[in-house]
Simulated assay, not measured.
Amino acid sequence: MADRQGWLIASMPRADFYLIAKPRFSERPLLLVCELARKAFVTQQPTLILTRDFEQAEELDELLWSFDEDAYIPHQLAGDDDDADTAVLIAPPGVDAPARPLIINLREQCPPSHGDRVLEVVAADPAAREGSRLRWREYQRLGFEVNKHDM
Rank of each mutant, 00 (worst) to 15 (best):
W7N: 12
A21P: 00
A87S: 12
A127V: 11
T86Y: 05
H75V: 05
H114F: 13
P98T: 05
D16I: 13
E62H: 04
R28E: 10
E130W: 00
Q45P: 01
T86K: 05
I20L: 15
D70P: 00
I90P: 15
R117N: 03
V42P: 01
V88S: 12
L89N: 12
Y18R: 08
L106T: 06
R38K: 15
A97G: 09
L50Y: 10
C34T: 04
I9N: 10
L142P: 00
L19C: 08
L106Y: 02
G79V: 07
P23K: 11
A40P: 05
G79T: 11
R38W: 09
A84V: 13
P93G: 01
E108T: 07
T43I: 08
D80T: 14
V42Q: 15
L36H: 09
Q140H: 00
L8M: 05
G79W: 03
V146C: 06
T51Y: 05
L106I: 10
R100A: 12
L63H: 00
K148A: 14
I49F: 04
C34A: 15
L142A: 07
F17N: 06
F17S: 06
L31M: 07
R24D: 12
T47E: 10
K39P: 00
P23N: 06
E130A: 08
L36E: 11
D61Y: 04
M151D: 13
L19I: 13
R24P: 01
T86L: 04
L19A: 02
I9K: 11
D81F: 10
A78I: 02
D16P: 01
K148E: 13
R107A: 14
V122G: 10
L30W: 01
F54E: 15
E55A: 08
F25T: 09
L119V: 11
E120N: 05
V33S: 12
A40C: 06
D3V: 00
Q56A: 06
R14W: 03
G115V: 07
R137N: 15
A127W: 00
S66I: 08
D82Y: 03
E138A: 15
D82V: 05
D116A: 07
A91F: 02
G115M: 09
D53Q: 03
Q109E: 15
D53C: 02
D96G: 11
F144W: 07
A21K: 11
F41A: 14
E69T: 11
F67P: 04
P13W: 01
D53N: 12
E59Y: 00
E27A: 15
R100T: 09
P98R: 05
S113W: 05
T51S: 10
D80Q: 13
P111Y: 08
P13D: 02
